[in-house]
């Protein structure tokens, strides 16, 4: 009983020195952003039957869809359209998660654990698509770098492979820490500035709100942009060479 009680307390209350909400707190925030996403999308869906979209939610959703589609096609190439659902979901979850930080004392994206989850999905998806595009062997062969003479290959290729693997792992940290740093850093900055003005009852931190709004948008964009770049790196062999008329015509 004592064990269950301790576990329950751990789920509800965050441990000492741990940033972000507790597990249950995070899930409540996540439920909130999922609810907000589905409310937005539900409103958007109502206007989809019209010949011309007049519903403002539908218009915003269409603009978002076209923006993400342009992002994918611009970075990945013509085959980038198939990644739109994944990138759009990232955008919605991260944007709404970031936007929560504007209204509440914390947000899912101010929690490194949540961000790491998003990064693991992103990088895992990239690896999966890389394997689908090049085959498992081809994909991992890509990590080994260029083909070298046998003497060099014995020493250099394992090193390159190791560095590439570390690089792939670091992408997870890079994606998650950047998001965490910006959103949680925003909170810390606002709190610190509020503390400065506490004696005069002036919430100085509110002057950071425009920057926070910008951060909300920019961080969602950066996460999606980087995922597109990673996808482009692992899938560009798939179509681009064969579809490039100049390369196809070259001897």
């Amino acid at each position: 009983m004592e064990f269950i009680g301790k576990s329950a307390i751990t789920l509800v209350a965050a441990s000492d020195g741990h940033h972000g909400p507790s597990f249950i707190g995070l899930m409540i925030y996540v439920a909130l952003i999922v609810l907000a996403i589905f409310l937005f999308l539900g409103q958007a869906k109502k206007g989809m039957g019209e010949r011309v979209f007049k519903n403002p939610f539908t218009q915003r959703f269409e603009q978002l869809y076209l923006f993400i589609e342009n992002l994918c096609v611009g970075i990945i190439g013509s085959h980038g359209r198939k990644y739109v659902p994944m990138i759009l979901t990232f955008w919605l979850i991260i944007f709404f998660g970031n936007a929560t930080a504007l209204f509440f004392s914390t947000s899912p994206t101010a929690d490194l654990s949540f961000n790491l989850g998003m990064a693991l999905i992103s990088i895992g998806y990239v690896q999966w698509e890389g394997m689908k595009a090049n085959g498992a062997g081809g994909h991992f062969k890509h990590f080994a770098g260029p083909s070298l003479p046998i003497v060099l290959a014995i020493f250099v290729t394992p090193l390159i492979f190791l560095i590439e693997i570390i690089s792939e792992v670091m992408k997870n940290l890079s994606l998650s820490l950047r998001l965490f740093g910006n959103i949680d850093g925003g909170h810390q900055a606002v709190e610190a500035m509020n503390a400065l003005g506490a004696d005069f009852y002036v919430p100085i931190g509110m002057f950071l709100m425009p920057i926070k709004v910008l951060t909300v948008i920019v961080q969602a964009l950066i996460f999606c942009l980087l995922t597109c770049v990673y996808l482009s790196l692992v899938t560009h062999h798939e179509e681009d060479h064969s579809h490039d008329p100049e390369l196809a015509a070259a001897p």
């Binding site: 441990s15 020195g17 741990h18 940033h19 972000g20 597990f23 995070l26 899930m27 996540v30 999922v34 899912p108 929690d111 490194l112 654990s113 949540f114 790491l116 989850g117 998003m118 693991l120 999905i121």
Partner: peptide, 13 residues
Amino acid sequence: PLDLGKTLAAIGV
């Protein structure tokens, strides 16, 4: 400052 349980749950969501 990580809680891998949250990470796993986030992936699940």
